[in-house]
Nucleic acid binder design. Structure first.
Length: 165
RNA sequence: ACUGCAUGUUGCCUUAUCGCUGCCCGCAAGACGGGGAGAGGAAAGUCCGGACAACACAGAGUACCGUACCACCUAACGGGUGGGUGUUUUAGCAAUAAAGCAACAGAUUAGUGCCGCAGAGAAUAACUACCGCCUUGCAAAAGGCGGAAAAGGUGAAAACGUGUGGUAAGAGCGCACGGGUUGCCGUAGCAAUAUGGCAGCCGGGUAAACCUUACGGGUUGAAAGCCCAUGUAUACUUGCGGAUGAAGGCGGCUCGCCUGAUUUUUCCUUUCGGGGAAAUACGCAAGGGGGUUGGGUGCUAAAGGGGGCGAGUGAUUGCCACCUCAGAUAAAUGAUAGGGGUUUUGCGCAAGCAGAAUUACAGAAUCCGGCUUACAGACAUGCAGUACUU
RNA sequence: GGUCGGAUGGCCGAGUGGCUAGGCAGAGCUCUGCAAAAGCUCGUACAGCGGUUCGAAUCCGCUUUCGACCU
């Protein structure tokens, strides 16, 4: 165990990085180019995982509703270098079987992955970070093309961040 | 050959691009690069049984819950295998055979309850009809007392069946044959049980009604539990501190500035005063319990896998060498395109051509052994039916 | 992931093995000059499949579906 783990100081540094929520965004941009971050990837740090933030998102976030999709968003500083973190859900009421829910969430993820670069440019221009939750309210598993078309419209509806917010 | 049913096996393959999650290696240590791995037969239902963990625990009994033909298998089981018994279907005149099914201990020696409607009566049964005696009456008959479960009808179920003797009429009341059941003995079998003999009994059903007998069961489940960090107010315990400044804050930090915490009792000495002890308030440190938010561990090498050689009718098991095969946590295992395979539709004598679909049930969450339920297509075996050929 | 409970007419809801109560709602009739209220009458139910039993809403098993609790 001792051999495996990193030296103590490095561990500390890593933790700082996670716990630090406030950071200077301008320095971030100088270190990591937005262009470099906007490949068609969707890794661990681009997904919204903090239950605290998710609670906050559902409580205070604004919603864009479009054709059975609901897109919740909240401009909020993140513990990630990426301009956005997203999460995807389908309700247990509409999809009783686990494999149906999984496949819907995979479709949403796939669609978001392809729409991501433009969304990131839009955010980088404002120098803002955002938390997003995409919910599918339909009762049947949709096709990928359908999801992409609707999501693209929904994302374009997200307004520019207010200075006060 | 086709169709149906049952059981078992299987549950599309491959190339490229864009991704996801662990692991290993590299490096400039990054959220980078490379390599290799990554979804089931039911992962499901959570119906049983274990492993593992925490807590509890003298012993015995009671309550409660579960199991229930016998033997074996197994870590264990309500599971499985083999056997027995009963029963259903099919074939057959029958004997019997084959296939399927069974929560299959006890209701004639523990006891209690329940059995609607109908029927005289549903458990010490007399309504009709039957028989005897008595009373009334010319008689027919009526009434009363008693006998009697053979006949009737009712019902899911009516007091062993047939025959015969017997009787006032009848009755297992006696006898013969037969049936069931309990006990003992003989034979076969480890046993359930089968079979033969002897003796007793035969006034119902229901235990997935209470119950009896035998056996088993401590409770709670990985959101168990253990560790680390973050960090807030602090009950309580211990230690230390002190206006000759504890402790905290700021700065230019061996220093300066600012803020700033206690009283009582008692003893010794005594001019004021000083010192000690105890209690208490305050402060600090440690322990500690309470709450908050994360991470690690538990956690994937196991009652493991397929293979070979044995043991056993079989479930299962012994030995040998080989293999390492998911580990996520707002929860990975995906998407697109091409090729092949499969199914299907149309055209065609056929070869083949063209189109469509690629589909079933379904997604690991601590891990195993079962059971149950769902399931497109393919293959194998068995049974049944239909048609044709010999 | 784990542990429990329910399902009876259009709605609520009782029912310890023997014809499934009751209320609300609905339809018809009475009453009234017409209505309301009241009274009378009627129709419509045991989630599904299988088993135990002479007989199942009830007992047992499986399935479907709704809900609750545990961090």
């Amino acid at each position: 165990m001792a051999e495996k783990s990193l030296p103590a100081e490095e561990q500390g540094a890593e933790k700082n990085l996670q716990y630090q929520t406030r950071r200077d965004l301008s320095s971030l941009n100088s270190a990591f180019d937005v262009e470099k971050l906007s490949g068609f990837t969707l890794g661990k740090f681009e997904r919204l995982k903090s239950s605290v933030l998710i609670d906050k998102l559902f409580k205070e976030g604004k919603a864009v509703k479009l054709h059975g999709f609901t897109l919740l968003y909240l401009y909020h500083p993140l513990s990630s270098f990426y301009p956005a973190q997203a999460t995807f859900t389908a309700s247990k009421r509409n999809f009783r079987h686990a494999h149906d829910r999984n496949s819907v969430k995979r479709l949403l993820r796939e669609a978001y992955r392809h729409l991501k670069p433009e969304f990131y440019k839009f955010l980088a221009a404002q120098n803002q970070q955002i938390a997003v939750c995409i919910i599918y309210n339909g009762r049947e598993v949709p096709t990928l093309a359908e999801v992409q078309r609707t999501l693209e419209k929904a994302i374009k509806k997200i307004p520019v961040a207010q200075a006060a917010a």
